[in-house]
Design a binder for these strands. Structure first.
Lengths: 222, 222
DNA sequence: TGCGGACCTTAAGCGATTCTTAACGCGGTC
DNA sequence: GACCGCGTTAAGAATCGCTTAAGGTCCGCA
């Protein structure tokens, strides 16, 4: 299911509000009201999990640990109390972001989208998009078949698209970020780099989509 | 200057830590320790401003207002105290994100990069009109039956109508926004685009109504 | 200093997609 | 019923992107 989001929240008023916000934003929210029910859920059947830390039954923190053991689904912590030690603990346990009450609906949506775009705000060194993995520190990219050697420009392009996973990135933006601006002559240069990048990506090239008239997009599902 | 970041922070220990974090991440931090100095600064000479809310002299909130009056530079609020009313006020005044102490250096960098990528985290990039969902970032539209591939012009038209959901939009306005104005010739071009858009929308085409003699309207309910 | 290789850029042909125009027919409005 | 606006289709034109091939530059190395 493309837009299924699990909400674990015992506060009825807050839960209703969040469900409504999510629906309006085009997501498909599933609301569970207590920790014990949430224990039984398979985290991988959701694109993202919103987790309240103050829950009856199993505490939210335990749920987070449990989910992290078996899945890499993005988890966004939602806390009614503004407790910074909770924040640290949550993020250390692998939560991807943290929103405290009160918040604007827009803020929640924005953070969700940020999480979906780049799982784990805390791990900036590695990017994973579908079967493509990028190590920004080692400047290395790999696919299922192994490491692939990319030139500087190719790596910049791939990293940029991966950072904005799912978004259409304009040709201009890519040229700005990855190519020497000294040569602003031919507009065909980018094509060539993309072409070679695709051939090096092999099967994973299907993830690098052309957005006609705009630019390119790197998706996690081919 | 490409990576100049202004840090307004009176706490010396925290300031040093942030400056170090920013430098290591490849930014060029400028640190100002009191609000009065910060008043004199031209916000537009920085790519992003990190603002502490608890400052001697002019309070941080006043600074934020002041910056917002003359510039759209991204502002990230950094608050030592975990005060949610501050958060609300800050975001309403146009701050782009909010980080509370304590935080991981990686978290700060991640949020900065998020702000630079998309100023104003609070502006959602999705539109939903009835059963039509439009993702402006992905540049993709979906209906109940799944994603539909739209050309550039078709997408522009749909997005424009969706932004003005419910109201009639004149043919001229649509042509202005979505089509090349170079071709001033035939007024029938728009019809063709609308026609193809409808056929691609499938069932959802019922939401795209003709307003006779005026233009078109995209409604919530078919 | 000269050579070779890796890399970036440019050019050009080709194929694919998209935009526009034209033409015809329908339907609403007076 | 006449007129004007709109829907639809088909076809040509324009645009855009992919690929291959060919310089050109920079760097390391002998």
């Amino acid at each position: 299911m493309p837009n299924r989001i699990l909400l674990v929240e015992d506060d009825v008023a807050l839960g209703q509000q969040v469900v409504q916000t999510l629906s309006q934003a085009g997501f498909d929210p599933h609301w569970v009201q207590d920790g014990d029910s949430a224990r039984e859920i398979d985290p991988d059947s959701y694109r993202l999990i919103i987790l309240d830390l103050m829950l009856p039954g199993t505490y939210g923190m335990d749920l987070l640990k449990r989910y992290r053991l078996r899945s890499e689904v993005p988890v966004l912590i939602l806390s009614a109390r503004d407790d910074t030690s909770d924040k640290i603990r949550g993020l250390k346990l692998g939560a991807d972001d943290y929103v405290t009450k009160p918040f604007f609906p827009e803020e929640l949506i924005a953070r969700i989208q940020a999480c979906l775009r780049r799982p784990n705000l805390l791990e900036t060194q590695r990017l994973a998009v579908g079967s493509i993995q990028i190590d920004l520190e080692r400047r290395e990219a790999r696919t299922k078949t192994g490491a692939i050697s990319l030139t500087r420009v190719e790596f910049e392009i791939l990293a940029l698209l991966a950072r904005r996973k799912g978004s259409a990135v304009s040709r201009d933006a890519i040229v700005d970020a990855a190519l020497d601006r000294a040569h602003h002559g031919s507009r065909r240069t980018l094509d060539v780099h993309i072409s070679r990048l695709r051939s090096k990506l092999g099967d994973a090239a299907a993830q690098l989509e052309t957005v006609w008239g705009i630019g390119y997009r790197l998706t996690d599902t081919p």
